[in-house]
Design a protein around this nucleic acid. Structure first.
Lengths: 205, 205, 205, 205
DNA sequence: TATGAATGAGACTTCATTCAT
DNA sequence: TATGAATGAAGTCTCATTCAT
């Protein structure tokens, strides 16, 4: 069903229903990873979850809501990594910020690279409330951080543009590195280089 | 139909059949852009193309082959831009190479940003023969170019890693800039900064 | 569940259960009016009634029984109007009878024209015990009344046929007039004419 | 699917498709009669028709359209009877008009009384284009006829009201007589009396 | 070779009813 | 007795593909 808001019909409150909803979400995640969006259908999800199709629709009013919910949770987790990273900074050195930021991105992409890839596809962006929107939120984080470190940035850097550029650079490069590189040394090499790229861009040294 | 090789059942040879196959591909492209993968189905394609569904299956043995063919052509065009760019270089300055390379990417993404986005989704990678794989091929181009310009690169740069990194940086950043930024000045600003990023990374100045 | 007898599983005896059964019937009535038979389902009824679906099935063994019960009550009310009308006659003039009879019908149809329309549809006639059958009962009323007024009827009128005819004339015409005519003056005009029709038919004046 | 216009997706043109569409309509009619609206579903219709479900949806875009189509045809046939009746009048006696009109109604109701009853239910009135609307059209016929016979009507008869009343009287009484009376002599008796009722109402004799 | 009607598996979703708590 | 989570049969509709003409 095409909608503009995809949210749970009712929140699971009892222990039992929490378990049920989790089973469904786990099964859905598994199928999304194993078979992609194409192979995803509510009947298979219910079967994998060991739950009746009716129970699935008790909590998720349509297929899209189920996917939206998984997307929401996945990206909430990613945002958490960025928040943590910022909270744990010990110096106010720009390099530490950049490194921490990139490490947070790596951590996020390592949680479940395949799921991440599937969920990064276009579908079902709608149901995400503004503040939940993964890109929007992380991007504004980046911008805020750059403002705070402005004195360490190269002069005449347009911060809005820089924030977007840095965000794209990091997010997409990390994504590709983790998806495409099987050898972890290669991954590490790319990540390491990426840190240099970003830092030298911001400082222009 | 799930396969590992998606290719035309037979090559159109007669003038008439070339026209038919083209009509189908144009219609398919249009639908992919207008309705995405979700809204894509062979019956609608045939109708849009003003062709019978039977004729469609005369040349395309299944839905996936049709999409694969469009993907193949689109990315072949992109590769063409890179080749051209390299052929048209007039100096052997690294800066010119980087600029040309990024401009080629921009040109490629501007051909049809929406189609590009749809085709960049996961589906139907299979049917692309090794040498047709867009990423693989452009990536090896980049590596070859860097080797040729090795004397202008910063010392102890691992060229394999650098090639991949540069490829990801450029490809993904350009993609995001063109898809997400509505104002062309903003696009230009990001592209312009990107050139600096890449060059300063390679030269380490 | 298809049955031939639709009746309550058990009579509500406690104050509490009477209230519960009434809540359910009110909710069911409301839904029948607002959404018609199509939009009627036991889960929604229970929700509207603020009662658990389990409780609903405690008293109504299936969906049909619930509808049958509402139908039964609605038509019992209608029959009440006819009984009252006859009891309140002051003269033994045939005209008074006819007028009173038609007014009773009008009153019945005005109670809830929309509900009446929904309940007049075919469904669930079964569960109505003979003596509850609205048509049967009112019809026999009419016949009895005509017999009592036989001396004022035109000679050689077949009373059985006349009773049925009069019943159909009144019931259906009033129904249509009230359902279809939005202006009350038009309704009144039709009702008024109807009285003349019936009277002149019976008296043949 | 809820819509406001229920019409065929495409007109059957070939012999084969005409046959197909007819098979489907016949099957649908049969099911409507045998099982009512409740028992009506597209799978059963297709099965009865010996046709695949896909073929059904080739011509009927949804269940409702199929029902609307049957309703449309049935009522078109009824209107035909009224038109014929008027065309075949030999005198300009009001009595002949009334008799012919009632006979047309009887004929219409005898075509398929059970189907008529099912189709007279509320559902799916929408798709009928104005001029196809059975009630609207016959009613206006009645009014036109009365105007033409105005000199034979009782003075100060409001023709609009009279037309509606006569229409309700005849339509509903005939309907009930044919549906409810199993003995044909009883039916004939009621019909015969009905003619008197209508005539005496219009002439007030 | 072209056509497009026909097919039918299978996806989504609803809702009457049950039953463990 | 009340609850409401859970069930799953059944209904609507789509769309990739085939095949008779």
């Amino acid at each position: 069903m095409k909608k503009t808001q995809y949210s749970l019909k009712k929140q699971p409150l009892q222990k039992r229903s929490v378990f049920l909803v989790n089973s469904i979400k786990e099964a859905a995640t598994r199928i999304l990873k194993e078979k992609g969006l194409e192979g995803f259908n509510t009947n298979v999800v219910a079967e994998y979850a060991g739950v009746s199709i009716g129970s699935l629709y008790q909590y998720f009013d349509c297929k899209e809501t189920l996917i939206a919910e998984i997307k929401r949770e996945h990206f909430a987790q990613l945002r958490g990594f960025f928040r943590e990273a910022q909270e744990n900074l010990v110096t106010n050195d720009l390099k530490e910020l950049v490194d921490a930021f990139i490490e947070a991105s790596v951590k996020g992409h390592q949680v479940d690279p395949i799921l991440h890839k599937v969920l990064s596809q276009d579908l079902v962006d709608f149901g995400l409330k503004e503040k939940d929107n993964p890109d929007g939120s992380i991007l504004s984080n980046v911008k805020a951080a750059l403002l705070a470190y402005q004195n360490q940035l190269r002069p005449n850097l347009d911060i809005t543009t820089a924030a977007e550029l840095v965000y794209y650079l990091v997010e997409k490069t990390v994504h590709e590195a983790i998806i495409n590189e099987q050898e972890s040394t290669k991954q590490l090499a790319i990540i390491s280089e990426l840190k240099k790229v970003v830092l030298s861009y911001l400082r222009d040294d």
